[in-house]
């Protein structure tokens, strides 16, 4: 699989580290145990298009949000995770 890093350009998957689901959001510290458990442990496993976090470990060290079809490995979009995170409502610690 080849991923187009928005900063570095197209690279082989060996330069990246997979992290997981990019749709989950870290809960507010006061959230219930169930909410925290869901954030840490519960993941959907869609057969198809998915939003994932990848890290360009051997390149620019940017975290990326990769929109990918997990069945075909077709990649629809790659965005800097920081831009995605800034665009959503900031979560304060």
């Amino acid at each position: 699989m080849r991923i187009i890093c928005p900063l570095c350009g197209e690279r082989g998957a060996e330069e990246f580290v997979y992290h997981g689901d990019a749709t989950v959001r870290r809960p507010h510290p006061d959230s219930s145990a169930e909410t925290w458990n869901a954030y840490v442990h519960l993941r959907d496993n869609p057969a198809g298009r998915h939003s994932e976090l990848w890290y360009h470990a051997a390149g620019c060290h940017a975290w990326l949000v990769v929109e990918r079809d997990v069945r075909t490995h077709e990649i629809f979009a790659v965005t800097l995770a920081q831009d995605v995170a800034l665009a959503r409502r900031p979560v304060t610690a």
Partner: peptide, 10 residues
């Protein structure tokens, strides 16, 4: 310039 791997080395 590029940041990449050379012989598995960053």
């Amino acid at each position: 310039t590029a940041l990449t791997l050379a012989g598995h080395i960053g």
